[in-house]
């Protein structure tokens, strides 16, 4: 067991180093940082609107660039190993194929963690920069002098600790997309195919829950249609599990237990994805 842990840790370390050397990481991360830096240009808003916009903008940037990073970097990484024949060197060692895939996922999770950390810290900095101006504007617009409690209330609106939970939910979502990208990489011969299929899965995943409910509640649907939607339900991810982040952005402050659905859903999905990916990867013949 210790040997297995050592092998996975070593491989993960190597994969993280390889991912850090990939241009695609910087090609996605730098525009994300530049996008965040344009935030101070949007200032002609009221207190409530400005807070909402800042949250939406920072979270939106992290979400969209995070999804691109999760899909493109993962697809590129496995495809590079296949094209450059690095896979032969790796698999020639006493490393199981599932260990290789698992380490890829783990390495990518580290990279995503780092990317979200960088973007998160930058967003916090932008929040801090706006805080003073927003409070001053709120005090200026108030019809009466604000008490210390009211001022604290304004600060709490800006620094809602639940925003960290929204980031965590986004992180689970990105890890799930890494899982699906690895699954497609095990059968695809080009990274482009993997990227497009994964992006499609991401888009269709948002429709999954509504399609499922429609199938369960509608009458008079043909058997073929029911089977089609049923098959889609089994295979596709349900992105509505990650909608908790949207509610937090709207100002909700749920308890830590609200993370359970998104965490549990990601965990179970990764389990079957790893099983199926290993199966497909095992049956793949490298020449």
């Amino acid at each position: 067991m210790r040997a297995l842990g050592f092998r996975v840790a070593t491989l993960t370390g190597l994969i993280v180093r390889e991912l850090l050397r990939q241009n695609v990481l910087y090609l996605i991360l730098i525009p994300a940082v530049l996008t965040l830096l344009t935030l101070p240009l949007f200032t002609a808003l009221t207190f409530e609107e400005q807070i909402k916009f800042t949250r939406d903008f920072c979270y939106g940037t992290m979400s969209i660039f995070g999804v691109f990073l999760a899909i493109i970097a993962t697809a590129q990484s496995i495809s590079n190993d296949l094209e450059q024949k690095t896979i032969f060197t790796i698999l020639a060692k006493p490393i199981d194929r599932w260990e290789y895939l698992f380490s890829k996922g783990l390495g990518m999770s580290w990279i995503l963690f780092l990317a979200l950390l960088i973007l998160g810290v930058l967003s916090a900095g932008l929040f801090a920069l706006q805080e003073k101006g927003l409070i001053e504007a709120a005090v200026g617009n108030a019809t009466h002098p604000l008490s210390a409690q009211e001022l604290q209330g304004l600060r709490d609106q800006i620094w809602n600790p639940a925003l960290l939970m929204a980031l965590l939910i986004l992180y689970f979502k990105l890890i799930l997309m890494v899982g699906f990208t690895i699954l497609f990489s095990t059968v695809a011969s080009s990274s482009l195919f993997t990227i497009f299929t994964s992006l499609m899965i991401y888009v269709i995943g948002h429709l999954q829950s509504t399609a499922r409910e429609w199938m369960m509640s509608s009458e008079g649907i043909s058997v073929g249609m029911k089977w089609g939607v049923g098959f889609m339900t089994v295979i596709l991810p349900d992105m509505s599990f990650y909608e908790g982040a949207d509610r937090i952005l709207m100002g909700a402050s749920p308890g830590l237990s609200s993370l359970i659905p998104s965490f549990g859903y990601t965990f179970f999905n990764l389990f079957w994805i790893l099983g199926l990916s290993t199966w497909l990867f095992e049956s793949r013949d490298f020449r």
Binding site: P261, Y265, F268, N269, F271, W272, I273, L274, G275, W279
Partner: peptide, 12 residues
């Protein structure tokens, strides 16, 4: 693994 993970997914 596939059955357990898939079962968990469908349960959720």
């Amino acid at each position: 693994m596939i059955v357990w993970g898939g079962g968990g997914k469908l349960f959720y």
